[in-house]
Amino acid sequence: MAGRAQTPRLDAAAFRALYGRVGRPATGGRGDRGALETITPDRVVAAAREVRSGRQVSLAAPVETHPGPDNPEPAGHRMTGAVAGTIDPSGLQFARDHFDMNIHGDADSHLDALCHVIYDGTLHGGADASSVTPQGAEALSVALVRDGIVGRGVLLDVPRLRGVPWLEPGEQVSADELARAEAAQGVRVGRGDLLFVRVGHRRRRTELGAWESATARAGLHPGAMEFLAERGVAVLGSDGNNDAAPSAVEGVDFPVHVLAVHAMGVHLLDYLQFEELVPVCEQEGRWSFLCTVAPLRLPRATGSPVNPIAVF
């Protein structure tokens, strides 16, 4: 089994210094697409060359409609049209239903828009946080990705590296560990890539049951963001929250969210699931693929439910 990465705590000064090292220059622009600017047309064309077998795999978990310790506000689902007992044996009827959900919960797969993280009174790039109004976000909303995100996806499987089924709540992944996972899997993360980091959250939840993951979960150590900054990663996704809990930073509960979204302009994908993706990667003999992410066109929203698709 590989040794576990060291996860030192950071004081406020050390975190500020890290923020400065990984942050993009401030623009304050409402149309700033952040790190998505690294996904140029030529990179999309190159990513399309990842398609060889035509196999497709969802990276999303099923939307949950029942409460649990990590999901006190589950998505609501009710039928509004014809159902058993009301169906006319002749003529036309429609089955219909209604959904509502908390986009940023701790169970359902979702995308965080660049307006999601307010830090020191600003949004990414120095945009004024007052642009987030009671009617919605007027700047840096999910509308920035209305045309979708298409690029090369790369999965780094940290439990596989460590020789365990999953990381335990509270464990954190370092930059060095991401580099070692690359080497072990024979892949390299590059500029404009969609990086997916598996910590095994979904498998643990399936096998042991849900727990209060708001206070205890595996994730990236803030220092791991230097790896993403160095490689020019466009999007970061995980089968957990990306952030570990408890936090490694004094006074900042979600340091990876602050660094990724606010400092770097990296859209986050939280609570994905990779248990169907891993065996396909193993069968295909590679850990990179074409990936498409298509958020809903929600007006002025801070995020969206999402179903990323890997194509091999």
Rank of each mutant, 00 (worst) to 15 (best):
M1F: 14
R9M: 12
F15R: 00
A17M: 12
P25K: 02
G28C: 08
G28A: 07
G29V: 09
R30Q: 11
R33Y: 07
R33C: 11
V44Y: 05
V45R: 12
A46D: 10
R49G: 13
Q56H: 07
Q56C: 15
L59C: 08
P62H: 04
E64P: 00
H66D: 12
P67H: 08
G68Q: 01
P69M: 07
D70T: 00
D70H: 06
P72Q: 05
E73T: 10
P74M: 03
P74W: 02
P74K: 01
G76M: 13
G76D: 12
H77V: 14
R78D: 15
R78S: 14
M79V: 13
G81T: 05
V83G: 10
T86P: 06
P89G: 09
S90Q: 12
Q93R: 10
R96A: 14
R96L: 13
D97W: 15
H98V: 13
M101E: 10
I103S: 01
D112N: 13
L114N: 07
L123G: 04
A127W: 04
G136T: 05
E138W: 09
S141K: 04
V142N: 12
D147K: 04
I149E: 06
G153V: 08
V154G: 02
L155R: 01
V158Y: 02
P165R: 02
E171L: 08
S174I: 01
E177K: 00
L178G: 01
A181S: 11
E182G: 03
A184R: 10
R188M: 13
D193T: 04
L194S: 05
V197L: 06
R198G: 05
R203W: 15
R204V: 11
T206K: 08
G209R: 01
A210M: 10
W211T: 03
S213V: 12
G219D: 12
H221A: 15
P222M: 08
P222A: 06
G223M: 10
A224P: 00
V233F: 11
A234W: 07
S238F: 08
A244D: 03
A248I: 05
A248E: 06
F254H: 13
F254A: 14
F254L: 15
L259I: 10
L259V: 09
A260Q: 02
A263L: 09
M264G: 02
L269M: 15
F274C: 03
F274H: 04
P279L: 06
P279K: 00
P279W: 04
V280L: 14
L290P: 00
L290Q: 03
V293K: 01
R297G: 11
L298P: 07
R300C: 13
T302D: 15
S304I: 07
S304E: 07
S304A: 12
P305N: 04
A310G: 06
V311A: 10
V311K: 00
V311I: 15
F312I: 05
